[in-house]
């Protein structure tokens, strides 16, 4: 009796969420896979079943490999650097510092700005001749650099921006975790005569491990999901040096309107995200049990 009542009420309450999730998350995953097996319909020529041809094209496409390589370089550069920066910021803000609130605000402000605005601010900041970066370099006689225009510096220039935007966000989580650490542990460490670095390495960082894991999962997803700055700043140029996977999907899907190929590319992104999800679910489960 109660079970059937629960199923009825529960089902009704879940209905809107279920319909929306099906329409915009599950159904598109299924149709992405199906579409990736068909050619892109053009004009009067309808889509034809072509098996794994799109994937063969993909594996032979140098731009795809370039986008993958760029995305992994981007992820493996931004994630550790922004996390190290975040930890340093959290330690600074958590110590006895004059004007703590102002400093914390300075670190956190980039986080709440839209990536589009950040990209425009940095476009100017990097601009040859006009930007502050170039002006400082001019003082050393190194002016006239177009960081976003050169293949060997463009991706690094974007990595710097991402670190700038993300570090303050991650700092918040480290700060919360630092404030949970019992002061007696720190006192014990200092009574034992441990130096600052020893305490950091032996006490603080191990205790922050769950936070570090949580942040890194978020950071990995972000590295594959956020490409607003690419659209605004470089559009993948120069010579695909800044093409990331989702940007390439956007370009193929809405620039060349090759939806079949875009579907195959999306499948790759879905597989990458699924792998990250599996790693995280193992970890989230553990957290829920401990609670």
């Amino acid at each position: 009796m109660k079970a059937s009542r629960n199923a009825l009420y529960g089902g009704l309450l879940l209905l809107p969420a279920a319909v929306l999730l099906w329409t915009f998350t599950y159904q598109p995953i299924v149709t992405t896979f199906i579409d990736s097996l068909y050619s892109t319909p053009r004009g009067r020529r309808p889509a034809a079943f072509i098996g794994f041809d799109q994937y063969e094209t993909m594996f032979a496409d140098p731009v795809f490999w370039k986008a993958m390589l760029n995305n992994f370089i981007y992820a493996f550069a931004t994630i550790p650097l922004s996390m190290a920066m975040a930890l340093a910021m959290a330690l600074l803000v958590n110590s006895k510092l004059r004007g703590q609130a102002a400093v914390r605000m300075a670190y956190f402000t980039p986080t709440i700005l839209p990536m589009v605005a950040v990209a425009n601010i940095w476009l100017f900041f990097y601009a040859p001749d006009y930007g502050l970066v170039d002006r400082v370099l001019q003082l050393f006689g190194l002016g006239g650099q177009n960081f976003l225009g050169q293949p060997d510096t463009a991706l690094a220039a974007l990595i710097v921006i991402t670190i700038w935007k993300e570090a303050g966000f991650f700092m918040i989580f480290y700060l919360a975790a630092l404030q949970q650490i019992s002061p007696t542990l720190m006192e014990a460490a200092s009574l034992e005569g441990a130096s600052f670095w020893q305490t950091l390495r032996r006490v603080t960082i191990p205790l922050l491990m769950p936070t570090t894991l949580f942040i890194s999962v978020n950071a990995v997803i972000g590295a594959f999901r956020l490409v607003d700055h690419i659209v605004v700043m470089t559009k993948g140029a120069p010579d695909n040096a800044t093409t990331l996977l989702l940007f390439y999907i956007y370009q193929v899907g809405f620039g060349y309107w090759d939806t079949g190929y875009a579907a195959a590319l999306t499948m790759v992104l879905l597989v990458i995200l699924a792998v990250i999800a599996l790693v995280q679910f193992g970890y989230v489960d553990k957290r829920i049990h401990y609670r």
């Binding site: 329409t23 915009f24 998350t25 159904q27 598109p28 995953i29 149709t31 992405t32 579409d35 997803i221 594959f224 999901r225 989702l246 999907i249 956007y250 899907g253 809405f254 939806t259 875009a262 579907a263 999306t266 992104l269 879905l270 995200l273 699924a274 990250i276 999800a277 995280q280």
Partner: peptide, 15 residues
Amino acid sequence: LMIMPEVLLVENYRT
């Protein structure tokens, strides 16, 4: 949580 709607933007645009 992992597969945000913008990742599926080509299909969602069609829907």
